[in-house]
Write a protein that binds this DNA or RNA. Structure first.
Length: 569
RNA sequence: GCGCCUGUAGCUCAGGGGAUAGAGCAGUGGACUUCUAAUCCAUUAGUCGGGGGUUCAAAUCCUCCCAGGCGCGCCA
């Protein structure tokens, strides 16, 4: 598609008195394929030419009546637009060949040139169960990780575990008061969570518990032996649980640098802040005023000397830059922390770090139940493991019903079940809140991963019967695909690279997810109208090349969403 | 009180200056002797939350309201 645009740009530029690049940015997608494949709106020329846009479109088309391009066929005026029709044979050959040659690298563009991008995602809070609320950061972050990698960046995944902070004081108090070794051994994460909930229930009646918790956290920060021992146990037990889920989801991190990882650096950070003179003492605490930047001031150190979340984030940001010299640093964290990140980035800027502008918060909406917001403290939570397993079971049932002869039902059920949950999270604009609903979470019909996976499986089935080996490329066969359904599909396949780039720039995997729905839909239309195996030789060959390219696009796209593309389902 | 986000078909959501605002679900009616019917085709459905403004052109940009959500120095 880019080549077509460039060609039109070169052609049109001298006639309209612009640079080719300017023409290209003006080009649009016509709303209906019958209008053409690429539109040039003539409004901008109305003033200089002192003519009505429709007349300009008319004149331009007449001027170019005898022109023919490599990829375009004709230019037809329609109202104020000059619409270009591509030459389906040449265009199809070009696109399919590109996909054929690039194979599993099709859509990948080396924009990053090996530069580092750190991506902070998942980052659960230790000693809290991994609920459905954590899935958003995990799944969106992991997809961005893969997308940046595909664009030639060196992605560095960091799991910023919430393994430090006053919640450990609370857990220690709760465990010392009400804890049982027996129960802890049996189901560690759930049990710690119950203790956490109990603490918050009890604190309503006995506010002194909070002071006790603060004091235990203070001890922890001082390296008190007993406190550290508890902390290590709680951390290890929680981590074991998270790792099971990451295994299931196929997610890996370069680093498990939790908040505690930065403990040794906090003193230095506080020192630097003081040196820069951007802080002041207030009632014994250390504050940075941000009022002049229309932001609430932040506290970096409590009156008892304990540090806060933002202090550790400050240390983490500096550490990440010093260690990785990142081109970008992304934080895939819920939208409720928007203010926190604005403050964090502002403080970094005030400290004189010009790389602060390369840090970005990638926010997403909350998952909520019908009754209201999910609250870890109140004990309302649905475990992610439960959702994933239920989804896999459900997929298994559907496979049993639809395709009882399938040899490997387990791996198909896993691909479809996990895909459904992931896709539910990736296909909508991340900023929107999601209402958790079992029926919706486990719905396999409509605009879902299963729809895309099914198209992929169907293609694989035809390819198994039709056969295409490594030497199967054929220029002539690839240029025979000129039916509307074929051209529409090819046009869709052509824009995968643009969609990957757009997803990366906006930090929105949903752009890619939506696009794959389009690919599957165009394929299904083709499938129902254009027989492959029963077509005569050359056309059959061409169509095999087309569906193979479609298979490749779906596989490459789903891979970047972290979703498997099964060959049978 | 102040700040940020969201508001599009009955429901869930795309589209984020340009041509008649699009999908899925739900509803209705069709298509399997033919490459997997987890599919396809047809059809119903909208004062794009409301008022002003900018523009040749606004669902889209600005502004003010309304509704919901999330935040706002000793949690993370």
């Amino acid at each position: 598609m880019q080549k077509l645009k460039e060609e039109v740009g070169r052609l049109l530029a001298p006639r309209v008195g612009m640079k080719p690049a300017e023409v290209i940015t003006l080009l649009e997608d016509p709303p209906d394929p019958s209008y053409g494949d690429l539109a040039f709106p003539c409004f901008v020329l109305a003033k200089t030419r002192r003519k009505a846009p429709p007349l300009i479109a008319q004149e331009l088309s007449e001027e170019m009546a005898d022109e023919r391009g490599l990829f375009w066929d004709k230019a037809v005026p329609k109202g104020p637009y000059l619409n270009f029709f591509l030459a389906p044979d040449a265009f199809g050959r070009e696109v399919l060949q590109d996909i054929w040659n690039s194979a599993d690298k099709y859509g990948h563009v080396n924009i990053g040139k090996g530069e580092n991008v750190t991506i902070d995602y998942s980052s659960p809070n230790i000693a809290k169960p991994f609920g459905v609320g954590h899935i958003r950061s995990t799944v969106i972050g992991h997809s961005l990780y893969l997308i940046y990698q595909a664009l030639g960046y060196n992605s560095i995944g960091i799991n910023h575990l919430g393994d430090w902070g006053t919640q450990f004081g609370k857990l220690i108090v709760a465990f010392k008061r009400w804890g049982s070794e027996e129960e802890l051994k049996q189901d560690p994460v759930n049990y710690l969570y119950q203790l956490y909930v109990k603490f918050h229930r009890e604190v309503e009646e006995s506010p002194e518990l909070d002071d006790e918790a603060r004091s235990w956290f203070w001890k922890l920060e001082q390296g008190d032996g007993e406190a550290v021992e508890y902390w290590e146990r709680f951390r290890r037990l929680s981590l074991d649980n998270y790792e099971q889920i990451y295994d299931l989801l196929g997610i890996k991190f370069e680093y498990y640098h939790g908040e505690s990882h930065y403990n040794q650096m906090l003193e230095k950070v506080i020192e630097v802040v003081r040196e820069k003179g951007i802080a002041r003492e207030s009632e014994g605490a250390l504050m940075v005023d941000l009022e002049q930047y229309d932001l609430p001031s932040v506290m970096l150190q409590k009156k008892d000397g304990a540090t806060l979340y933002i202090t550790r984030d400050l240390a983490a940001a500096i550490y990440r830059f010093e260690t990785f010299n990142f081109a970008r640093s992304l934080y895939v964290v819920g939208a409720e922390q928007t203010l926190h990140f604005q403050q964090l980035f502002k403080v970094l800027e005030l400290l004189g770090f010009e790389w602060a502008k390369n840090c970005a918060h990638v926010p997403f909406g909350l998952i909520r139940f019908k009754e209201g917001r999910m609250s870890t403290r109140a004990g309302k939570i649905i475990l992610l493991e439960e959702v994933l397993n239920r989804s896999i079971d459900m997929a298994r049932e559907i496979i049993e019903e639809k395709n009882p002869d399938l040899p490997d039902k387990d791996s198909a059920a896993k691909a479809v079940g996990l895909g459904a949950v992931r896709f539910g999270d990736l296909s909508n604009d991340r900023i929107k809140n999601i209402e958790f609903d079992w029926d919706k979470a486990l719905d396999f019909s409509g605009e879902t991963a299963a729809y895309i996976q099914y198209a992929h499986a169907r293609i694989c089935s035809i390819l198994r019967k039709g056969g295409l080996d490594d030497t199967a490329w054929d220029d002539h066969a690839a240029s025979l695909l000129t039916r509307d359904e074929e051209t529409a599909l090819i046009k869709t396949l052509a824009i995968l690279p643009d969609k990957i780039i757009a997803s990366a720039e906006s930090y929105k995997p949903s752009i890619l997810a939506r696009y794959l729905i389009d690919v599957a839909r165009e394929f299904n239309r083709f499938y129902h109208n254009c027989p492959v195996l029963s077509s005569e030789d050359e056309l059959k060959h061409g169509r095999l090349l087309l569906i193979n390219a479609t298979r490749q696009v779906i596989a490459n796209g789903l891979a970047l969403l972290g979703i498997e593309a099964p060959e049978e389902m």
